[in-house]
Design a protein around this nucleic acid. Structure first.
Lengths: 230, 230
DNA sequence: ATAAAGGTTTAGGTTTGTCTAAATTTTATT
DNA sequence: AATAAAATTTAGACAAACCTAAACCTTTAT
C-alpha cells in the first residue's frame, strides 16, 4: 500500500511520540507537526480508515501493528539516508536531518535494500539512533541519560535527544559528538550542572539542560530486541 | 525560488518537448504528462505568472531564460541520480528512470553538488544523455541516428531515444547498450531494416523502428556547447 | 470566403490537506 | 456533584491540482 507524504509524516510523528508516552494526544501531535488540532483529527480519521491506528474519539490513539510496520520502514529509510549523507557525501551530522526528511519519502523498496547493502548494513545512524532492518528489528543500546551516569564511569555518547540546530551548535562548540568518551567528575546540586572530563581536554562543565539531551553507553553492552514484523 | 513537484514536472516536460520542435502546444504537453488540456492551461497561467514562460494564449509557449535555468537544474539532478543508481548502487540502466523521477525533486542544492563531487563530475548519464553542470552547460555529443550511419563506419551507441520498458527489453535481448560498438553491413530498402555487426557476435538484423531510437557517436568527436546561465 | 474540424481556454466541480470558529466531550476544581 | 477549563471533534471554507463540458479561437478544406 502506498501513502502520501503527508500521511507518512503523521505516521512517523505518532511513532516518535509513542516512544515517549504510551498513548498519543491530538494536541501533542499537532504541535509536533506544526499544524492545528482540527487538521490532525481529519487525518486521524483517514489513517484509522486504513487500519493504521487504534483510535477511539476523544481517547487518544496509537499505531496499529500495520501502522507500526509502516512507521519503521520510514524510520529505516530516514536513518539509512542520514548514514549515506554523513559517511559517503561528507555532510556534517548536524546538516542532514532536513534532507533525510525529504529522502525518506522516496518509494522504491529495492532502492532501500540496495542502499543498505551499499552501506554494508549499518546498525546506527550518525546521531546514534538504531536503524531498523527490513523486518523492523533493530539493536537497542543500553543507553543512560548523562544525568543518571554515576561518577567516574567511562561512557560513550551514543545518541542525542534532539536534532535542533541550537543543540548541535553547542555540541560542536564543546567538541562532543557521537562516539565521544567521557566521565562525570562532579555533580553540583545547586543547578544540576556537571563537571565532565573528555580525554585530551581539560575538564569542563555542562548544564542540566544539555546533559538531559545526551545518552551514553557505559563501555560495552548491546542487545538485539524484537519488534513488530508479522 | 522553490517550486512544487507538479510545477517542476511541467517545466521539465516543456524543456524536453522544446528539444524536438521550437514551440510547445497545450495538447502535446497534456499527452506528455498524461493529463488533460484544461489542466495544462491552468498550470500555464501559474508558471507564466512566475515568469518561467513565454506564453500568449492560443499561440503555444516556450520556457523563458529563467524557466530554462530551472529545467536544467532538474535535468541535472535527474541524470546525476541515474548515474549514482547505476554506477554505485548497481541498478540496471533500464530500472532507474522512475526512481530518478522522484529523486530529482529533492530540493537541497548542497546535496546536488556533493553528489556531483562524490561521483567525480560525470559528463553523461547511463543512457548517454549529457549532464548539465551547475551553470546549465553540458557537453553535446555529435550523435548520428543509426538510420543515417554510413555503411562500414564504426560507431559507439551513445544514447537511446526512449526509456520504454519494451525498448529496453529488446535492447537487452540483442545485447546492445550504451558503449556498444557496431557497424552497419547492409541496408534493405524493402523494410528499411539493417544488417549490423557487433564485435564478438555474428551479424544480425534490426528493424527500422529500433534503429530510429539508437544514436551513435562515430569513433572520436565531442564538443562543449553553451546554454542559458545569466 | 466560409464552414467544419481541431486545438485551447473558461466555467464550474472534485479531492487532499489545510484552516477558523463553534460545538461537544473529558478532566479538573471547588 | 456541579461547573469551569481544557482538549477534541465537527462544520464550513480555502488553495492546489486535477477533472468534464461548454465556449472560444485558429487552421484547414472546400
Amino acid at each position: 500500500m502506498k501513502f502520501s507524504v503527508s500521511e507518512e509524516n503523521y505516521i512517523k510523528s505518532i511513532y516518535h511520540l509513542q516512544q515517549q508516552g504510551e498513548v498519543v494526544s491530538t494536541n501533542d501531535l499537532a504541535s509536533e507537526l506544526q499544524t492545528k488540532a482540527a487538521s490532525v483529527t481529519d487525518m486521524l480519521k483517514k489513517l484509522n480508515g486504513k487500519n493504521l491506528l487504534n483510535y477511539e474519539r476523544y481517547q487518544g490513539f496509537t499505531l496499529s501493528d500495520e501502522g507500526t510496520k509502516v512507521a519503521l520502514s520510514i524510520v529505516r529509510k530516514h536513518r539509512l539516508w542520514e548514514y549515506f549523507l554523513v559517511h559517503e557525501l561528507e555532510f556534517g551530522w548536524d546538516e542532514v536531518h532536513d534532507i533525510a526528511e525529504e529522502l525518506e519519502h522516496i518509494s522504491s523498496p529495492l532502492l532501500v535494500e540496495k542502499l543498505d547493502s551499499y552501506l554494508s548494513h549499518p546498525k546506527f545512524d550518525p546521531h546514534g539512533d538504531p536503524i531498523p532492518d527490513i523486518n523492523g528489528k533493530m539493536e537497542l543500546r543500553k543507553q543512560v541519560n548523562l544525568i543518571d551516569l554515576p561518577l567516574d564511569v567511562e561512557a560513550e555518547v551514543s545518541a542525542v535527544g534532539s536534532q535542533s540546530t541550537e543543540l548541535l551548535e553547542l555540541l560542536k562548540h564543546k567538541n562532543i559528538g557521537i562516539g565521544t568518551v567521557l566521565t562525570v567528575l562532579r555533580k553540583f546540586t545547586f543547578d544540576n550542572s556537571l563537571e565532565i572530563k573528555v580525554r585530551n581536554f581539560p575538564p569542563f562543565s555542562i548544564s542540566q539542560q544539555l546533559a538531559q539531551t545526551l545518552f551514553l553507553k557505559p563501555l560495552y553492552g548491546s542487545t538485539t530486541v524484537g519488534s513488530i514484523s508479522k
